[in-house]
Amino acid sequence: MRGRSTYKAAKAVAKAVEMHFAQHREAALLQGDEILAPLPRAGMIESVIDTAFWASLRREEGISPKISLAFLPPELAGQPLLFEKRLPLTSGMLTKLGPGVERAGIHLGVWYEKNELFVWGTTLEIQSYCFVLDVPEPGLLVIKHRRADRFGKFANVAVLKGDQIKIVDEQSSSLPQCPTLLTSLLGFTDPASWNESVNVLVQLAVSMRAHGRGGTLLVVPKNGESWRESIVRPMQYAISPAFSGLANLMRQDEGERNRSLWQRSLRREIDNIAGLTAVDGAVIISDQFELLAFGAKITRPAGAMLVEQMVATEPVVGNSAVVVNPGQHGGTRHLSAAQFVHDQRDALALVASQDGRFTIFAWSPCENTVHAHRIDTLLL
């Protein structure tokens, strides 16, 4: 294996990442799951992170590489694309390969022999709990793994940006009144914590963040009408009857949901709704995923109190809850979302900022206030 890493964050996070994978692999084995990726050791984790970090700062024809590295041998990668000669794992090599493997779902396979790491090819298929390192932009690395049921977004373990390290705090999901969306994002490793309804909200959040324009999504009760008091009327882009493309997919028999055609249709409907959040104003959907309106303007109902404070948290190790004024947490989107949830306490507001920040606003009965859960660390 190469000498000591020169990227300090790589060494600082390696042991914690090894422990994460070891604990979850052990739990999965106890549950009878035998199809698991090999356990990455701290030294190898450190080397992979170090190499990928320096590769992210290089450019090929003026473009920074966007790559995903998966730590597993080719015999465990389904039908891999194998290089005739394996390539040494170096920052220069990753930069050269970057343009050909930047599409989502393509992973460069990394393995070792006699403690020397190498790239053996590419794969579209990886096993549960496979150590994956994504490089979405220069200096930004995301350590993650596939969930046990192999569908939906990967579970994030840690995010490294320059010298900043954020390790996901899985215990945050045990907070009182924690929104089920956040609980699911934190509990990706536990299949029992996952259901299709929450999966859809997770995918909507990912798609909202991906378009990069910022936006707001309001989730309101299907059989309630009080939310209309918090929306300026008439709504310019009200939908009548409610659009049920996504809702109809979710009503299909569970046996259909494992088919690739259904999953492609689901992603198309999710992107359809998430794309509308780029329009000025909020998208409104029911908790049964019917599209009710987009471009909606949030207002404070007559006689309602102005929201003056809320609790803000981020599910990373070392973070603690703080009480802040909503205006200090973000821009007008965040302030209006906090006001909406303050007035419509059975609703949920998802807010994406143009800079990538993503926040879930939910009413917390135990704290008797709006709780802002910042989750962009989980969505990368």
Rank of each mutant, 00 (worst) to 15 (best):
N223R: 11
D287Q: 08
R264P: 00
A296I: 09
S260Q: 13
E269A: 04
I273S: 04
E269S: 11
S226Q: 13
S230N: 06
E229F: 09
Y237W: 14
E229K: 14
I270D: 08
E290L: 13
F289I: 08
I285S: 03
G281D: 03
F294E: 05
A293N: 08
A278H: 01
A293P: 12
K222T: 06
E256L: 12
L291G: 12
V220W: 03
L261V: 09
P234C: 09
S260H: 05
R267W: 01
A296W: 09
E269H: 12
Q288E: 14
R257W: 10
R213Y: 04
D253C: 14
G295L: 07
F289E: 04
E256V: 07
A282T: 08
S265C: 05
D287G: 03
Q252S: 10
R267Y: 00
A242W: 15
A278M: 00
S260W: 02
I239T: 14
V283F: 04
A278R: 00
V232R: 13
P221F: 02
T216F: 02
A282D: 02
E290M: 11
A278C: 03
L217N: 09
T216A: 03
V232E: 10
G281A: 10
R228F: 06
F243Y: 15
V232P: 00
S265K: 14
A296Q: 11
R259H: 10
P241Y: 14
R259W: 04
I284N: 08
D280F: 02
A282R: 05
D271C: 04
P234S: 11
I239Y: 12
L261A: 08
S260Y: 03
G255I: 15
L217K: 04
I284Y: 06
V219K: 05
V279E: 05
M250I: 10
R267I: 01
I231S: 06
V232G: 01
D253M: 12
V283T: 09
I270P: 10
N223H: 06
N248W: 12
Y237A: 09
N248S: 12
I231C: 03
D271H: 06
L261Y: 05
T216R: 04
R228H: 07
K297F: 05
A238C: 11
K222V: 02
E290D: 14
M235A: 11
A242F: 14
R251H: 10
S244C: 14
L291Y: 12
E256N: 12
V279W: 03
D287T: 09
Q236D: 10
D287N: 15
A278L: 00
T216P: 02
G245K: 15
G295C: 13
L261E: 11
L291A: 10
R264E: 00
A247Y: 15
I284H: 08
G281C: 06
A247C: 10
P221K: 03
S230L: 02
D271F: 01
E229D: 13
G245T: 09
A242R: 15
S265T: 05
A296K: 12
L276G: 00
S244F: 13
Q263E: 01
G295D: 07
Q263W: 03
A274I: 02
R233Q: 15
E256R: 14
I285T: 14
S286P: 05
A282S: 14
A282M: 09
I273M: 05
T277K: 01
I239E: 10
Y237G: 05
I285M: 15
